[in-house]
Computed example of a mutant assay.
Amino acid sequence: MDWSGAVWRKSSRSGSDGGSCVEIATDPAGTVGVRDSKVFAGPVVVVAAAEWRAFLAGVKGG
């Protein structure tokens, strides 16, 4: 999958110091790409939208 044209969003919990950050993007099919914001050309982990929502619910739930 080509994520070169994706619009990436940085985590709202990321600091402004340029440290460790996670970015996500979605494609038209609704899959979610996750990458390290410091490695733009690095690997992208791709998950289904339902899996991403379950992950977020788990994180928010503690």
Rank of each mutant, 00 (worst) to 15 (best):
T26W: 10
V32S: 03
G15M: 06
S12W: 12
S37H: 08
A48I: 01
V32M: 04
V44H: 01
E23D: 10
P43I: 00
T31A: 03
R9N: 04
V32Y: 06
S4P: 00
S11M: 07
V34Q: 01
D27V: 14
A48E: 04
L56H: 04
R35S: 05
S37L: 02
G61V: 02
S11A: 05
V45G: 00
S37F: 05
I24N: 06
V34M: 05
G62A: 10
G61Q: 08
C21V: 12
L56I: 13
W52S: 01
S37K: 06
G18V: 10
G62V: 08
A48W: 00
V59Q: 03
W52H: 09
G33I: 12
E51M: 06
W3V: 02
R9T: 13
G15F: 13
A48V: 02
G5L: 01
V46M: 04
C21L: 06
D17T: 15
S14H: 08
S20D: 12
D17N: 15
G33E: 01
R13Y: 15
L56V: 15
G15L: 08
F55T: 11
T26Y: 07
W52Y: 13
K38L: 12
K10V: 14
M1P: 08
A49E: 10
A25Q: 06
A6R: 05
G42L: 11
R13H: 15
G33Q: 03
L56E: 06
S11D: 09
R53K: 13
K10M: 07
D17F: 13
A57V: 14
K10N: 07
G30L: 07
V44K: 03
A54M: 10
A6W: 08
V7K: 13
E23H: 08
V22H: 01
I24S: 04
G42H: 12
G42E: 11
F55G: 02
R9Q: 14
S16G: 15
G62D: 09
A50R: 13
A50H: 11
D36H: 07
V47G: 01
